[in-house]
Nucleic acid binder design. Structure first.
Lengths: 140, 140
DNA sequence: AACAAAAATAGAATAATTCTAAAAATGGAT
DNA sequence: ATCCATTTTTAGAATTATTCTATTTTTGTT
């Protein structure tokens, strides 16, 4: 039996999500690809191995996963949402030049002092700039 | 002469943007409406007073303003981009229940320690949760 | 095997944004 | 003022990410 598949299944069940073939595939994809993929990338990559897969299913699954708090949706790019199954505290950096999105580990997320009565259940920080490679190219 | 219009004009010129009627109108709108409007809201509100206004112009102008660093684009909502002319350090909070987007003042933006070679030129923090009013309603 | 509930599917519909090509406005130089 | 080049605006078409709808398939239970 495949260890990864078991982890995937457990993680879904832990959040009350029935582990169908398609949901397992999307979840496994996110757990093994730390590339912050778009819904379309996930669909395109999974399609060859699940030829009956529909884009609607990918969207349905991603929405369900986000609702249940199993993955995060990243809106660092205006165009399309990106998804991330890593729930350890980290922030995202986008390189203005090459478009890469990198994880940057942090001890904990920053939650500024909020006005009275406001409760926060999640926080995201996005940094934009130039990555090391792009800075290197410019220096030459 | 109108003081606000002068401030608007100066702010555009300071960033090398020719202050056309349309650009002034969009910029003035953003400076006087701290509601984080979408492009569509800006268009709809300005249209009555500038009946020749085109949506493309609103988008062109907003893109120019963001490029030149005069306003920030806020991607706290997946659906549409929102815009903010206030460049003082503050973060945005979105209420999951009523959808309101609030400003929360901070001393300075948080920029975590980045990997070597990475340079950051801007950072945004989004917090999501429930606002005071919605929390109140739930408590009753 | 029969049935109800849940999940997946194809394709149409929606909506935000960008693109295109043409028209209008602007700002010199003559 | 007039001509010309450049910039800006415009309307509408095109694009694209996402959601919706109605149907079919799968799953689990009696």
């Amino acid at each position: 039996m495949d260890g990864v598949k078991n982890m995937v299944k457990e993680r879904l069940q832990l959040h009350g999500i029935k582990p169908s073939l398609q949901r397992m595939a999307v979840m496994e994809y996110l757990m093994t690809h730390r590339t912050h993929p778009t819904a379309d990338m996930i669909f395109t990559d999974l399609y060859p191995s699940i030829p009956t897969l529909s884009k609607a299913t990918v969207y349905n699954t991603l929405n369900l996963l986000v609702e249940r708090g199993v993955v995060r949706m990243i809106t660092i790019e205006e165009k399309n949402a990106r998804f991330d199954a890593c729930m350890d505290p980290h922030i995202h950096f986008r390189c203005r030049d090459c478009g890469a999105i990198l994880d940057v580990d942090v001890e904990a997320h920053w939650i500024p002092t909020m006005p009275d009565g406001v409760t926060v259940d999640m926080s995201e920080t996005y940094c934009i700039g130039s990555c090391a490679e792009c800075n290197n190219k410019k220096a030459i």
